[in-house]
């Protein structure tokens, strides 16, 4: 018999997703793959928000997820535009090769 699933299961899954996203963002060199891993991190946060919304019995957590999605959409649009410009300028998509602003 499988033990019943509680909120802590969802939170552990959220932590696991966050850890995978963090590992991806830190180990990839390509700027697009880093953005993709950031999406995973944001999704993990969304899962935690919805779980707490369920635990506490109010809808504010789900409203927050809505706003996180809006910010993620804006972030992806601008971030990918920056990636396109950088690749067009230098021909490279390596995040380490963009160090013009480094002193």
């Amino acid at each position: 018999m499988i033990p019943p699933v509680g909120p802590s299961h969802y939170l552990v899954l959220s932590g696991l997703l966050f850890a995978i996203g963090l590992a991806g963002a830190a180990s990839r060199r390509n700027i697009i793959m880093i953005l993709l891993s950031l999406e995973l991190i944001l999704s993990a946060a969304n899962l935690a928000f919805v779980t707490f919304s369920k635990i506490l019995g109010n809808l504010e957590g789900q409203i927050m997820v809505f706003f996180v999605m809006i910010v993620a959409a804006a972030e992806v649009a601008v971030g990918l535009a920056i990636a396109v410009v950088m690749v067009r300028r230098t021909g490279k998509s390596d995040a380490d090769s963009f160090r013009n602003l480094k002193w």
Partner: peptide, 22 residues
């Protein structure tokens, strides 16, 4: 070019940090 990874040290640190957070 797209699938290039950072050095093993970076990847180990990333996995360690992710594991700690988890």
């Amino acid at each position: 070019e797209l699938s290039r990874l950072r050095s093993a040290t970076w990847r180990g640190a990333a996995l360690g940090l992710g594991g700690l957070l988890f």
